[in-house]
């Protein structure tokens, strides 16, 4: 399976043992998130709602493209892709 890199934003690093990046095997964004959260449930629960959807103010980018404008969690990943989790800049 493809090995990709996930960039972790600073507020979530306490739930990723302090890591700013983690490498996980995944063919899709959904698989990457599932593998990321397998041993880090507190991390995953901050990215996805209890219903399993991306939280409204959490964006996931593959390269420079927001997966909401691609195929969401079914967006395919290629080896070496960088997937960034970035909180939306909302409000004041």
């Amino acid at each position: 399976m493809n090995q990709i890199t996930v960039q972790i934003p600073a507020p979530l690093r306490p739930f990723a043992d302090g890591a700013s990046e983690l490498d996980v095997p995944a063919a899709t964004v959904g698989e990457a998130l599932a593998n990321l959260g397998e041993e880090r449930p507190a991390l995953l629960s901050r990215i996805l709602t209890p219903e399993g959807e991306l939280r409204p103010y959490v964006n996931v980018f593959v390269g420079e493209r927001n997966v909401r404008r691609l195929d969401g969690r079914r967006t395919p990943l290629a080896p070496g892709d960088v997937m960034a989790i970035i909180p939306a800049v909302a409000g004041g």
């Binding site: 507020p11 979530l12 507190a42 629960s45 901050r46 709602t49 209890p50 939280r55 103010y57 959490v58 909180p87 939306a88 909302a90 409000g91």
Partner: peptide, 8 residues
């Protein structure tokens, strides 16, 4: 609760 990261 956090606006972005949800309720825990």
């Amino acid at each position: 609760r956090h606006k972005i990261w949800g309720a825990h």
